[in-house]
Design a protein around this nucleic acid. Structure first.
Length: 748
DNA sequence: AACGCCGCTTTTTTT
DNA sequence: AAGCGGCGTT
């Protein structure tokens, strides 16, 4: 380790590194060298204080951040860093839960349900109780359950506490508690935990098993929490318990960058921390090393509008830097074009690489127009987040088989695969099996094994075949390594063949994705660092991976596109914050749910402070939202920036384009959705076999042929309802028929 | 049981 | 724009 590493730190940074004993809170402003401090702090513990790496627990916000930090520490102290306990709350505590699972009545190979699994389980439950699925939407229900779990409210407490019932009744959803209870029960029966359970159950484990708590209290002599402002109560209590004996707890955060309240994060944790540890050391890092004076100034002018904050003053010694460019576009597509050409020019003039640019947006759906523009300009880009690899259908299908082969209680996996590919086991049969299992108080797998007694002939034999197949997969998974098992399952489940036979472009893509999955598993198996090469172990590895953790591209020179949320902790030379429009950013949801806009403003603050050299912002006058063109107002946040930092009316003027002209017709005209007028029914001009091919217009009086009714005449065409549906009257030998479906009508 | 068509909903952010 | 449920047809 370098002798003089302390010298490159400023006094508060140095203090933060050296103050290793006792409770410490580091309030680290944006760009204040927080990561460097954390790295050196751990290196200092290892090297100077001879602390065993096994006794340091460092909790980060993403697995990627953990990986990078481990890497940096390794550079400072060598291979010792490998043994540090480092990762997200979810990954560290799922590891602990696995080794202590039996104490909670779980097997150590328990499945982790992702939010898709959770939502579909909730959907099943709502249906099972015959509740109104318009009222009990999976998203809403899951949020309610999730926030209860994050506040450590069990279903027992939830159903016993009249306050929750009153609240739910007021919202017209009195059955929430019942759903919560059933949800927990079904997860447990499926040997599954959802994301929140990983934290909730860790709390239960530490509450009910003092010996276990004690073991970890002794083990973790030093506990560190990064991004503390984004921890929830459940997470806070875990760290509090772990550090209760040694009291060497160090939290690092910035209340100005708290952007995950929607997920249960509670800034109150920062205030509680002071109460819980009266002897607390507070260290403030206020000097920003990252950004120009302009950028720091703009950020401060935004965050200054917030009422709820711990006062601190972030300042910088860096240059003034250039003003913020404000780009104004006619449509979202033009916004993309302008951003792409700004990147192109900046690359030429200032010799930047693609990797020096990031484009940040509020919602994932905004990436589309940007992608297209970048592609047109031959600028390489990469999207972080969005629909991750592991969420794709074909991948989830394969993993569904794998999951079920590892855990036969995994109901969600079973539902996914039992009739994929089609093998003649329909929804009705599955429902019968589930009911039978529930009635006999048996698990689903037992019901499947007894399909002959439960179902009729054809379906039963299909299920029997399925059971035989899974049994053989079960053996494969137990005997072979993850790669061999996955290849075997992909082939013998029939999934691979189905994809191979699909010769469409998407089909080919899906096939390639599966190959990529298999390659990934091969890599996992070949990696000397993975000790357990079984399928079960691979599943555990990937359950908590996010798209952001995935960065094995050989060529790293690309423009990064992502949401502001996923940009947390990163920095780029040049940053574009796009879609600066009212209702979009700040989000309409936040405005209409009459919450204050402080979190949105903090989000804006995070976006601005990612930039080192130059900041661009853009908005469009019209944008497609929900498939409709809407006119937009510039975001109120643009008004809030100190005008001294803004370069208004940028050098780019909006070029015209067909889309732009189309949009301009509606500007100032309407804020209502624009719908293309439907004057005439459009039908498919058929080929010989009535398969739709081309389109042409159908008119009243046309002689037509209908596949069922034969030859006749169209006597009336009416466009009805808000959705402009065509009602066609078909007449044959004086007899009239109203046709609602006319895709196969043939004009003669 | 599978397929095809229609129409409704959805998107705020993520471990 | 796209995915999903519903419903009618094959």
């Amino acid at each position: 380790m370098e002798e003089n590493y302390l010298e490159i730190l400023n006094p508060p940074q140095r203090e933060a590194v050296l103050k290793t004993e006792g409770p410490t809170m580091i309030i680290a402003g944006a760009g204040s060298g927080k990561t460097r401090v954390l790295t050196y702090r751990i290196a200092h513990l290892l090297k100077e204080k001879n602390v065993d790496p096994f006794s340091i627990l460092s909790l980060t916000f993403t697995n990627k951040a953990a990986k990078e930090m481990r890497h940096r520490i390794e550079e400072l102290v060598g291979t010792d860093a490998r043994n540090l306990w480092m990762g997200t709350f979810h990954s560290v505590f799922s590891r602990i839960l696995r080794s202590e699972a039996d104490k909670l009545g779980y097997p150590s190979h328990f499945t982790i349900y992702d939010s898709d699994d959770s939502k579909s389980l909730i959907k099943n439950i709502v249906k099972y109780y015959g509740l109104d699925d318009k009222l009990y939407k999976p998203n809403v229900v899951l949020n309610r359950i999730s926030s209860a779990k994050n506040r450590l409210v069990s279903w027992q407490e939830y159903t016993n506490n009249p306050i929750y019932l009153a609240d739910d009744t007021e919202n017209g959803k009195p059955e929430m508690g019942k759903i919560y209870k059933e949800y927990v029960k079904r997860c447990f029966k499926a040997d599954a935990m959802d994301f929140d359970d990983l934290l909730f159950n860790t709390n239960v484990l530490f509450r009910d098993h003092v010996d276990v708590l004690n073991k970890y209290q002794q083990r973790f002599k030093y506990v560190m929490v990064d991004e503390f402002q984004d921890t929830n109560i459940s997470q806070y209590l875990i760290t509090k318990k772990l550090a209760a004996v040694r009291r060497n707890i160090c939290v690092v955060g910035d209340d100005a960058q708290s952007i995950y309240a929607f997920r249960g994060a509670d800034i109150q944790n920062i205030l509680n921390f002071e109460k819980d540890y009266p002897e607390l050391n507070i260290i403030k890092l206020e000097q920003n090393y990252r950004s120009s004076k302009t950028i720091v100034g703009a950020a401060n002018s935004i965050i200054g509008k917030n009422k709820n904050q711990l006062r601190k003053s972030v300042w910088t010694d860096n240059d003034e830097g250039s003003l913020i460019d404000l780009i104004k576009a006619t449509t979202d597509n033009e916004e993309g074009k302008l951003v792409a050409s700004a990147i192109f020019e900046s690359k030429n003039q200032d010799h930047y690489h693609n990797s020096d640019f990031a484009i940040l947006y509020r919602t994932n759906s905004q990436s589309r127009a940007l992608e297209e523009a970048l592609r047109r300009n031959n600028i390489k880009y990469k999207i972080v987040g969005g629909l991750s690899f592991y969420q794709r259908k074909e991948i989830k299908d394969i993993l569904g088989y794998v999951r079920f082969s590892v855990n036969q209680n995994d109901e969600q996996a079973l539902r996914r695969i039992i009739n994929t590919p089609k093998r003649g086991i329909g929804a009705a049969s599955v429902e019968k099996l589930i009911v039978a299992a529930a009635e006999n108080n048996a698990d689903l797998w037992t019901a499947l094994e007894n399909a002959t007694q439960i179902l009729g002939g054809r379906a039963a034999s299909a299920v029997n075949d399925f059971v035989t197949m899974i049994k053989s997969f079960k053996l494969t998974v137990a005997k072979k390594d993850a790669f061999e098992a996955a290849s075997h399952i992909a082939k013998n489940s029939g999934l691979l063949k189905e994809l191979y036979d699909d010769k469409t472009i998407e089909g080919r893509n899906r096939y390639e994705n599966v190959q990529e999955l298999l390659n990934g598993i091969k890599e996992f198996v070949d990696n000397p660092e993975s000790e357990d090469k079984s399928m079960a172990s691979f599943l555990q590895e990937i359950a908590l991976l996010t798209d952001a953790d995935n960065d094995k591209d050989e060529d790293k020179d690309y423009v990064t596109l992502m949401t502001i949320h996923s940009s947390k902790g990163l920095e780029f030379k040049n940053v574009f914050v796009v879609g600066m429009e009212e209702d979009l950013f700040p989000s309409q949801m936040m405005i209409s749910s009459r919450q204050d806009l402080e979190e949105e403003r903090r989000l804006f603050y995070v976006a601005i402070t990612r930039a080192e050299k130059k900041l661009y912002m853009s908005y469009a006058l019209t944008r497609y939202r929900f498939g409709r063109l809407k006119t937009c107002e510039p975001s109120r946040f643009l008004e809030e920036i100190d005008k001294d930092f803004l370069k208004m009316n940028l050098k780019f003027s909006a070029p015209s384009s067909p889309a732009g002209d189309y949009a301009k017709n509606f500007i100032g005209n309407t804020t209502q959705p624009v719908r293309k007028p439907v004057n005439q029914a459009v039908v498919h001009k058929p080929s010989a076999d009535f398969k739709p091919s081309n389109t042409s217009k159908l008119a009243e009086g046309d002689k037509v042929e209908h596949p069922k009714f034969g030859f006749g005449k169209v006597t009336k065409i009416e466009i009805q309802g808000a959705n402009k549906k065509a009602h066609i009257t078909f007449e044959k030998a004086g007899e009239k028929t109203l046709l609602l479906s006319f895709a196969k009508l043939r004009i003669l």
